[in-house]
Write a protein that binds this DNA or RNA. Structure first.
Lengths: 193, 193
DNA sequence: CACCTAAGATATGGATTCGTATCTTACGGC
DNA sequence: GCCGTAAGATACGAATCCATATCTTAGGTG
């Protein structure tokens, strides 16, 4: 009677369910049975694909990671571009950052990894978008052609991530603007005096 | 034969054991039996004081929080003072920040709180130390008398916390210096040009 | 249309842990 | 030196969850 999913479609449904479960109940209460129930199937289907709980957690994380991609904004100013990126992250990644930073603690312990190991692939992807963005700012004459250090370039995003990790919630927009206007831009723009 | 601890001494030993257990095995594998074993006693002693697991976790966190206090450095320069504080945090608080930021995820979920709620009492305590420190920098003529925003004042510590949360490890000293020299000081010192 | 693979349901053994109950024994107060 | 309180040990029922095994059935393949 019920339609029976197969192959890739089923696998995606399982991984999505696992991720949602991770986000909602956390790693400590992450059970195979709950994932199966959420996906509308049974534990056997999970064990057929992943050997145990941690294997599934790892697969779900990688799966979600692959879906994330930011496209490069072009608002005409460095301020607008960076703020657009931050707003995008703030609107779509709070759950991911929360899970990555907090709920996976048990996973890190068992695998000897840390949140940075999950973050790095994302960051290198974003770094390319940032390259374009800073190049355009140089062309417009907004900033000097000397390349910025990686720390300064990632500064607004590090601060945003920090805020999210402290509050487990989206960051108010005026805080985003504060970060850009009182911390980031003063460091990269030539002093206006 | 064995000496039997009582009252406050016993309670402190129990809370310390609970905290160590939290730091070493994480919240997910935090069991009453393990805490009791580490403290050299039995579960009944724990249940006599705290109604359940989360109650003990909460008490242990508050207990450790109360013990933390930074004394205000006076090295003769703002750079030295801030770096001294950062090195102190880096040397003594990595475990606490890791537990606070990551291992307590389950606790936050149940209590509806977030790491920021645990951090705030610490920060307000530190803010007073920072007041003294910035006042001295003004007196020395290092920085202008206009008060800095809270965001800029806490910037090096937020970045330090962020680094620790990403790596679960102490931050290399040259990274601390990089944060201070390429991000913090350029924002608070008058431009040297 | 017959066959085979895998989906999905269900049962289960084993391990872990929670929280309570019961008992003995050390220690402090009087 | 007696006595009550609480420390500490031990046992236990109930619940949870992991991981596997077994079985039925849907759906794709030929």
């Amino acid at each position: 009677m019920p339609e029976r999913r197969r192959g890739a479609a089923l696998e995606k449904a399982l991984l999505d369910a696992a991720w949602e479960e991770l986000a909602e109940t956390g790693y400590a209460r992450f059970t195979m049975e709950a994932v199966a129930r959420r996906a509308g199937t049974s534990p056997s289907v999970l064990y057929r694909r992943w050997s145990d709980r941690d294997d599934l957690v790892r697969a779900a994380t990688v799966h979600v990671l692959r879906e994330y991609r930011l496209d490069t904004p072009d608002t005409g100013s460095l301020r607008g571009d960076v703020l657009t990126l931050m707003r995008e992250i703030n609107a779509t990644r709070v759950q991911f950052i929360t899970v990555m930073g907090a709920h996976l603690a048990g996973y890190y312990r068992e695998t000897g990894t840390s949140p940075g190991d999950l973050r790095d692939p994302l960051v290198t992807g974003r770094a390319q978008a940032l390259d374009v963005l800073f190049d355009r700012a140089v062309e417009r004459g907004e900033i000097k052609p000397e390349p910025l250090t990686e720390r300064v370039r990632s500064l607004p995003f590090d601060l945003l991530r920090h805020e999210i990790l402290m509050t487990f919630a989206p960051v108010p927009d005026d805080v985003l603007e504060e970060i850009v206007d009182t911390v980031f831009l003063p460091l990269v723009l030539p002093p206006a005096r």
